[in-house]
Write a protein that binds this DNA or RNA. Sequence first.
DNA 1: TGCTAGATTGAGACCGGTCTCAATTCGTTT
DNA 2: AAACGAATTGAGACCGGTCTCAATCTAGCA
Lengths: 355, 355
Amino acid sequence: MSETGTGRREATVSDVARVARVSKATAARALGDYGAVSDAVRDRVQKAADELGYRPNALARTMSTGRSNTLGIIIGDIENPFFAKATRGAADVAAEAGYDLILSNSDEEPSVEAKAVAVQLAKQVDGLLIAPASSLEPGNLQPVLDAGRPLVLFDRTVPGVDVDAVITDNRAGARQLTELMLDAGHRRIAFISTLAHDGAFRAGEELSSSAVADRVIGFVETLAAAGIAHPESFVHLNARRDGVDVLAARLLDGEAAVTAIIASDSLIALAVFKAAQERGVLIPQQLSLAGFDDAPWMSLTTPGVTVVEQPIHEIGAQATRTLLHRIRGDGRPPETTVLPQTLVERGSVAAPPED
Amino acid sequence: MSETGTGRREATVSDVARVARVSKATAARALGDYGAVSDAVRDRVQKAADELGYRPNALARTMSTGRSNTLGIIIGDIENPFFAKATRGAADVAAEAGYDLILSNSDEEPSVEAKAVAVQLAKQVDGLLIAPASSLEPGNLQPVLDAGRPLVLFDRTVPGVDVDAVITDNRAGARQLTELMLDAGHRRIAFISTLAHDGAFRAGEELSSSAVADRVIGFVETLAAAGIAHPESFVHLNARRDGVDVLAARLLDGEAAVTAIIASDSLIALAVFKAAQERGVLIPQQLSLAGFDDAPWMSLTTPGVTVVEQPIHEIGAQATRTLLHRIRGDGRPPETTVLPQTLVERGSVAAPPED
DNA sequence: TGCTAGATTGAGACCGGTCTCAATTCGTTT
DNA sequence: AAACGAATTGAGACCGGTCTCAATCTAGCA
């Protein structure tokens, strides 16, 4: 009641102990709810704590127990709906288990990611969830392994780093979308991703996101199986987010024009849809469009956008469950959980226009 | 190089000191980059640290310095694009200043929020950013004040709690949208929000979100000024997210049908747009629609959706800047920063249909 | 009533840093 | 060469909890 003391130092276990006339150890036991304390003393301590407005210091606890009840999560960008959903999935599972989340955005920059990893480790997170900025360089993950801290990757794997991962079947999803286009009669189909990559994509080249890599593989192999020549020439990377419209425009006319586009995420699908609309290109009559990741607006447009959907919330949730298992000391060999992608057909795919 | 020791305890300052043959105090000075250390010793310590794979323990540092370089942010739901953007704004400013973010979702539940506040305080955050779940009960914020920890509210204020806040001019925004509708000739205009509220809205009632309250005030006063009777009867709250379609359907036909709808956020606008589409109600010919918060898809639909836009990223960024000032000891009296809302006209508002 | 197992309590080390204060070393000046 | 101030270093307390281990207390049973 009389807690108005502005400059007053926060009450500690010792303070409470003094007021309750017990030892620090006993007060700590009563407050921390561990060890054995008689009911009488417990009440007395609790009363003293209330009176003093005692608020525990979780860091001090972590110092001695070694457990922080905090997880780190490093993602590309929380504004990206994919990461927002996955983060929510992670936060839900974490909260349920009494854990908090420290969030870092890497902007898909390995250097930023490296710094985030260092900070999170310094803050003694009990485990880390990372959507790695690069599937090619395991370097950023090494400190986590060195520190012996549990680590679960999600959305992407990093070959060579033997840890748990939760991903979806991107290759199958890409195959499905590509087949859908082929079945509709398309032969010139573009795949667009914003993934940064040096120069144009060439067959066999490794990509810095295993998720995109898997999609590209599924796309290329399906085209190849259908007898399409140089399928990799239809893969367009480096479509910087604000440049998707430019790329789309280029793909929509000229002699190299395609009749179908597969967008590697919902933001790209949106940009393509807009570009087509602005240029008066009718979907699906003149251009077929399909993409990865469902978004609420996709059933709003005319036509709706056909996509393969990922259980994004579940990716984050499952990754966190796995992480918690590891924290609790599950010693099984690391495994990669692959969740399914499911096709949601709307109206954006149709037969290509007649010449 | 030889860091493969799996069970090996993490190296500490003392370990480094021993290897570098200096005192713990000196090693700490060299590693922590404070105090004075000779160059020779600094190098020797650094070498020892590298050799041992020394990684600092930020919590131990916090224990003695009292500074955690961590901010807490408590929002409704990170999946909501509004909060995702604001959080990104906060994270950017925080990262720039060397701070991390601990994230909690309150789901707009005061009880969940209360728990989040307690946990964040226990984790010794240097300050808190909160989009308060309730503008009516200051109870949840009291512990923050008691703990003497800097606090900045955003999106909503809590009358009676004298702290900094960053909001936008919702009343003006609502006025603008309402006038737009009135000018187009509408007389029956509905305002829809998902804000939970007991029973139907009555004039003068207080709402648990000051943001929505301000919008309602702007809406109602503008209708009243136009001579519309019982303007508050056009306010529809409690539109639970999945019930917006039902409500919209109800507003679209029957004798109580409205000719225009103002949606209190982009998710509601989407639901209304969809409901209209599904029922074959043409926008803007049969129904005019406008809303708060811009979203990428709003320029995709036919017609585009007219909105007042808030500088959401900046809300989070500005709130964090203010918080950092307070942490650094700015003693000025708390102030509420009001950012402008700007009208973005697209095609979703037109004259009401003739009877 | 005496004795012992079990429950309760207290004392103090410990986690890994920072920081104060005193001791030591060094470079200069006279 | 002695003396002085500045720079560097070391010793140890401290932050606020937890936890081990020993001391004390209580109750049950012979």
